[in-house]
Design a protein around this nucleic acid. Structure first.
Length: 340
DNA sequence: AAAGGTCTCAACCGCGTTCGT
DNA sequence: AACGAACGCGGTTGAGACCTT
């Protein structure tokens, strides 16, 4: 049922706020001499006007000799994102796999950096899936491409960069009446890779959005998402894999390693769908940029993390990292609230 | 240069779990 | 088995640093 803070019971007035150098030294001296543990009695023995909890926190988050300082490297950031997709907000577990980093530090870094960046990129930081519900693609595509009336939205300004396989899969989900708007997450798929019902129910007949588009715009070559859905149903591991740590589902695209990028836009589907769709888009709407790696993109990562000796991570690196997974970004000038 | 806004991160708080009696 | 103390974790806060206008 929880309990009151340890120092409340004593009735003593414990010091709060930032630690002074003198306090740090007292704590360090004591721990070097007697070791840590029994945090309740430690402050008294060490001559500190702090509660044990505060001492423990100061030690674990700041004074511990093995704490690594400085910015997170790209490898560390990649690890955090990957582990977070598996473990969620289990900061202590994540920290256990990042030597020298504390759970508090990782939590702060997540909340102040990674989380915001993911949101800006249209990726839900909780599910690690594209926040597709923000941009109902079927609505946008239909209103923009299928209507002969003047385009209600300047679609070219969206400049999304879709992974065609993902787009096909997304279309199948949308067209199944949005019963499941997100991709399966660690919460939705159980340890034995059972696909949640809404996803399993996505049927051949449900898949209509993109073929309709193609027909309406005289593409000539229609394509189906059926293959992808069936592949997903038959081989969910192709879309995700159970975590070695928890047995839970980890979303995976391309090379079976979550988050690491094969060269972008390499679609394993051996069909002509990609080229057709790419051709369609580039010919009809000048979307060439959608299906090509942006010039500014850094070298794609492989599963061995090619950012060697990276001392600091940049937004560009993380964004390209996620872009290589989802190929989806939201322009700054898009008024997101309109879709919420 | 100054004011206001935003960001960062150390520290606090409260709760659930574990441990000892 | 029951209870309370201690521990550890995750969410939140707020002061100071930094940035923008």
């Amino acid at each position: 049922m929880g309990r009151a803070p340890c120092c409340d019971k004593t009735g003593l007035l414990m010091k709060k706020g930032p630690w002074s150098q003198e306090e740090d030294q007292k704590l360090l001296d004591y721990i070097q001499k007697y070791g840590y543990g029994n945090w309740r009695t430690l402050p008294t023995n060490a001559g500190l006007q702090r509660c044990g909890k505060s001492c423990r926190l100061r030690w674990t988050n700041y004074l511990r000799p093995d704490i690594k300082r400085g910015r997170f490297s790209f490898e560390e950031e990649e690890t955090i994102i990957r582990l977070h997709s598996i473990l969620g907000n289990k900061w202590s577990l994540i920290a256990a796999r990042l030597p020298g980093r504390t759970d508090n530090e990782i939590k702060n870094y997540w909340n102040t950096n990674i989380r915001k960046r993911l949101l800006r990129m249209g990726i839900d930081p909780v599910t690690h899936s594209p926040r597709l519900q923000l941009l109902d693609l079927s609505t946008i595509l239909n209103s923009s491409l299928c209507n002969n009336s003047p385009t209600q939205m300047n679609f070219s300004r969206l400049q999304p960069r879709f992974n065609p396989a993902l787009l096909r899969f997304a279309a199948s989900l949308f067209s199944s009446n949005c019963q499941s708007q997100d991709f399966p997450t660690q919460n939705q798929i159980t340890s034995n890779n059972q696909i949640p019902p809404p996803l399993m129910q996505t049927s051949v007949q449900d898949v209509a959005v993109l073929p309709d588009l193609c027909a309406d715009t005289n593409l000539g070559t229609s394509f189906s998402v059926n293959d992808d859905v069936q592949e997903f149903q038959q081989n969910p591991a192709g879309y995700g894999m159970p975590s070695a740590l928890t047995g839970e589902y980890v979303p995976v695209l391309n090379d079976g390693y979550y988050g690491s990028g094969d060269p972008p836009f390499v679609d394993p589907t051996p069909s002509s769908v990609n080229s057709n769709f790419q051709s369609y888009c580039s010919n009809s709407f000048g979307f060439q940029s959608i299906f090509s790696t942006p010039p500014s993109s850094p070298t794609p990562l492989n599963s061995n993390s090619t950012y060697v000796n990276s001392c600091s991570s940049t937004e560009d690196e993380t964004e390209s990292y996620y872009n290589s997974m989802w190929k989806f970004e939201i322009p700054d000038d898009l008024y997101i609230n309109a879709f919420m």
